[in-house]
Amino acid sequence: METHTENKRTFPWWLKFVLLLVLGLPGFSGWPNGWLIQRLQETGLFTVEIAHIGVWVFYACCVWLVVLVSAGPHKLLAYLGAAFILGLTVAILGAVMRGLFPFLAAGMGRDATSFKLIRIFFNIIIFLPYSILFINSFSAKKLIDRVARLDGRYRTAGLHLALAFRVFQHTGEVVFNLFQIWTEEYPEKIIPRNSGSPGVRWYAPGKILVWIWACIHAWIFACIIHTFEPIPAMVAEVERINRANPEA
């Protein structure tokens, strides 16, 4: 059977885990990116900012390549779409807020503030696709099964962690569903469908900020609510697995 044989072609979980950890190493430890930036600077050809950007762009391409190979072009584009929207929103709002409230960037020069925002932007566009790939690369079911067969004090903590892992995975499913609902309501995605009332210009400077803020707010709460909604049913399921595997 095709699906059956294809299932067996996937990597063992530990190999996936190690490979993904290696891929994420620059994010966790800064190495080897920090080392590479230093080497580039030492050549005298690059400023520290250019070296930083060059190395992190190269690293971003490596992460995206892995996502492309693992998940396919459509998933990569979807993740990048979400990551760029989030990254740009955070960076632009960050710049606006720092302009309006200078104490947020107290002690930092103008260039340092801009550079920090660029770093935040890069972190989002690299680590959002990476995190989604990481979370969805492992089977929550297998993890719960393994933990439920443990004895001792790690069992309860392990089951809680496994459940939290599944809830994280479920967020991806929720976003997929919410995106369909959003598309039905707002076919243009970022423009309100009902914006034609006489004398009302939704794109007036004040209103557009209200609209963007309301969209971010709506998405955050919709994601949280729909992710949390099945938790009682999931807990009941995990409890059942727990009862079926009594401790020795």
Partner: peptide, 24 residues
């Protein structure tokens, strides 16, 4: 229910027609 996007029934209606009093 999912189409309420996590809002109350009236809250959703107000949100959708935020810029269009006539349609609301």
């Amino acid at each position: 229910i999912d189409q309420l996007f996590g809002k109350s029934i009236d809250g959703h209606m107000d949100w959708v027609f935020r810029f269009d009093e006539d349609k609301r």
